[in-house]
Design a protein around this nucleic acid. Structure first.
Lengths: 237, 237
DNA sequence: AAGTGGTCTAGACCACGTG
DNA sequence: ACGTGGTCTAGACCACTTT
């Protein structure tokens, strides 16, 4: 005899069916939890378990205290290239937007200096940016840029590609990158900035770029919503 | 006035402190939920919310109905190289183990044929393997190998590196790889095989390898626990 | 001001893993 | 056989978003 699935998984399936029946698509809002709980004759707690399941699967997402929405298609993203976020997004038929949340010149703290092979307290630019696709905030990005050779960068508009600026205005280009990627919960400030609960599933991406002489160019890390992207990399050899 | 955090987040912190006090490390078991709920004077529901938070952060993990354990350090993993899982793991001071769960010769279904640029119903080897680090099951791997040039592969021991077999016994070697990576919930059979609940956070990794002539060699996909690995890639240019 | 999602309580039963 | 984690109920209050 096949063991029958728990109520919340049956409910999950009913919700999937219902979403498909109603033809809900990208960023459409679901009815309130109490409405859904009544419609499917269950408790709000159990309903929320079903919703959480669909959230984990990337079918729906929630925006803070605003409610549940249908998740858009994933963005393809190649971290080994640098054609710029905005261009990337447009090529895939979406609408990008970037906000520069803060920019300042700091003295590299120890952890950063170690990562980048710098001496403690070396001056370094720090940018924090928030990036949207179709008005959904998908990631928070921190860029730490070596000011050598790009003095004045902070006065420019950084709502587009930093690499494009570095290439066009300062003739700086990366020759090698070390990339680290792993799933990591989004917490605290980052969660707030992305309008998600602390502990939401996310993907952490870190990149250290050097120039041809092996000099340190940029350290960047990015916190992505877990359902927002698909990494695509091509490797030879 | 700073808004006070909800009980489950305070509880989260207490649990972290308690784990550190008790010097619990890699794979140590936590007390039962009822014991913890009593100790911290809360409900099992709220306690479980705190535990789920720590699970999302990768601090603890659960093994099916067995209880909660402290998460081991992440395994570093470079998907662009092929020195073999077992060697990888040992280099980092852990103990690997691989089980071949099934191996058979199948006719490529449509989705696979499309992915690999084959005609429908081309014969292809299919291996399913489960890999452990320090006796914790971390991933399920599916390998689809082009039988051309490696007839008899299925009769060999596949508990070590497939690529090593292909290189040493059949003189086959990949020249280019296309890799896709994204967070994805682990569900159904895969969840069962990994002893986790359906819907647990995971990382999906897919790799298509071709030889120098552009011929299809292997398609593989892997389902990893979200807290198990750290991807490390180096890219030139 | 009303209604929403987020949090929390105090129980209960069941299926499964362990001893 | 026992105890565990997994599931579920039927409520409640609060902080925040929206109207």
């Amino acid at each position: 005899m096949p063991k029958s699935s728990p109520v919340y998984l049956q409910l999950r399936q009913q919700l999937v069916d219902w979403i498909s029946e109603k033809n809900l698509t990208s960023q459409d809002k679901l009815p309130g939890e109490r409405v859904l709980a009544t419609k499917f004759q269950t408790t709000r707690v159990t309903l929320r378990q079903a919703l959480a399941q669909l959230e984990a699967e990337g079918v729906i997402f929630r925006s803070n205290r605003r409610g549940w929405y249908v998740t858009p298609a994933r963005l393809s993203y190649d971290p080994s290239r640098d054609i710029g976020f905005n261009l990337y997004v447009r090529q895939q038929g979406f609408t990008p937007r970037t906000e520069t949340i803060s920019k300042e010149l700091i003295l590299a703290p120890q952890w950063l200096a170690e990562k980048c092979g710098l001496r403690d307290k070396t001056p370094i630019y720090h940018f924090i940016r928030r990036r949207y696709v179709d008005e959904r905030a998908l990631l928070i990005e921190h860029n730490f840029v070596n000011p050598d050779g790009c003095a004045g960068l902070m006065e420019l508009n950084t709502d587009d590609s930093l690499w494009q600026l570095l290439r066009d205005k300062f003739n700086l280009q990366p020759a090698s990158r070390n990339i680290e990627i792993y799933p990591q919960a989004i917490v605290d400030d980052t969660a707030d900035l992305l309008n998600v609960n602390t502990g939401s599933a996310g993907l952490y991406l870190q990149r250290i770029s050097h120039d041809e002489a092996g000099g340190f160019l940029e350290f960047d890390h990015e916190y992505w919503l877990h359902d927002a992207l698909k990494l695509v990399v091509s490797v030879q050899g």
